[in-house]
Nucleic acid binder design. Sequence first.
DNA 1: CAGTGGTCTAGACCACTTC
DNA 2: AAGTGGTCTAGACCACTGG
Lengths: 244, 244
Amino acid sequence: MERSNPLPLYYQLKEVLKQQIRAGHLAPHTAIPSEPELVARYRVSRATVRQALTELVHEGLLYRQHGKGTFVCEPRVQQTLSELTSLSEDIRRRGKRPGGLLLVSELVRGSETVRERLRLLDEEQAIRLVRVRTADEVPIAYEVDYLPYPRATGIYQRARELGEGSLYSMMASEGLTPYIAEQNVKAALPSAREAELLRIPPDEPGLRVTCTTFDQTGSPIAYSEVFYPGSRYEYMVTLRVAKS
Amino acid sequence: MERSNPLPLYYQLKEVLKQQIRAGHLAPHTAIPSEPELVARYRVSRATVRQALTELVHEGLLYRQHGKGTFVCEPRVQQTLSELTSLSEDIRRRGKRPGGLLLVSELVRGSETVRERLRLLDEEQAIRLVRVRTADEVPIAYEVDYLPYPRATGIYQRARELGEGSLYSMMASEGLTPYIAEQNVKAALPSAREAELLRIPPDEPGLRVTCTTFDQTGSPIAYSEVFYPGSRYEYMVTLRVAKS
DNA sequence: CAGTGGTCTAGACCACTTC
DNA sequence: AAGTGGTCTAGACCACTGG
């Protein structure tokens, strides 16, 4: 707890607790120190402690029980959301090595669907990225991404880095921070081109997933269409169920 | 703002703001009154105002911008998460009437997969519910749910009410509150029985979605397997992307 | 500069759990 | 009764935004 540190105290406390949990010093379903205890140990006010704990609860690391204490969540609850929305992370989680080949990076007008999803104005264009994603060198998905131009100019310039990097993290570093994703999943047959690039029979059904990503204000920042051949990849989604 | 009301002040304030947003008095992307303004108007402390606002931000109704103000989210961001995890809600959202037919409600030992997912102990059983879900009387999904027994005894007793009701809301009322859901989606062909009940050709591919639901502590409270024929239903998922 | 939200304090009282 | 988290107050100072 460094008061000279520019990072907020509640944030520092969060990091300390996260580390203790990740290091295994605090096992799942065991209680962490009580709030007054944390107040005394780290010399901060209770409000500060509660802000740290409340955020960790929202992030799925802790849960509270009135009158009993604050407990550590199971790893399954801890690893929620973001990791599984990224294909590369999911591949890594399954013990495989993610990779990718950027086939196309261009500016296009975009189909009506694309323009609608990205709410493009008349004069605006879309950046189109086409990739074949691989796991241990085996092609497992054909992905086409569209981003609004000129808003995502930085992405267009850095497209070459997308070999194995994550598009989402590059977007975040360009100020396009994903907040909500809407996904639509259908069973479908591959197009001729998809079958060829993924090296699958043209009659092997797979999943066609379209995904529109929005930032915190609800503005669309990306639209993607992905084909996953049925024999190569199982599509996983983890989501937190809202309260009310 | 009734101080005699047993409901907390921050909660009452949340409800007031929610109502104003839903009623359209506060349009998307417009600023709500500032925090000092709310303090004065509702005669509560700033901490109380901030607790209300922070929760509404987490619920996707508001977003904050440092130095500028607090703004109303777009409806698309507001209607996140829970509603779309419920098939009935999704059907309703598309302007169709949800329905369902409960085919089976029984106690079983369950396959290894089921027992593993629900972490059943040797002597424990599973409640098995089989349903055909409909939209405007058209069958759109074949769903098999498993719940831990005896933990979900109440569900077993109330199974008949599941005609059109939501299993999730019934679970919540029985103290089995869903918190996290893990879904796995595959393209697949229907079984003979599914094809017959859904009245689809046996070679029409669809989606096979398995879903394990956990409560806040990470204990599994339900496991389900659903088949959606490709021609009848598009599977939708909306999720919030985690920050870090 | 004034106004906004972001962080923080030092208290207080209450409701729930356990013994 | 003692300990836990849940709610609430009345202040304070800071960082960011806009004119």
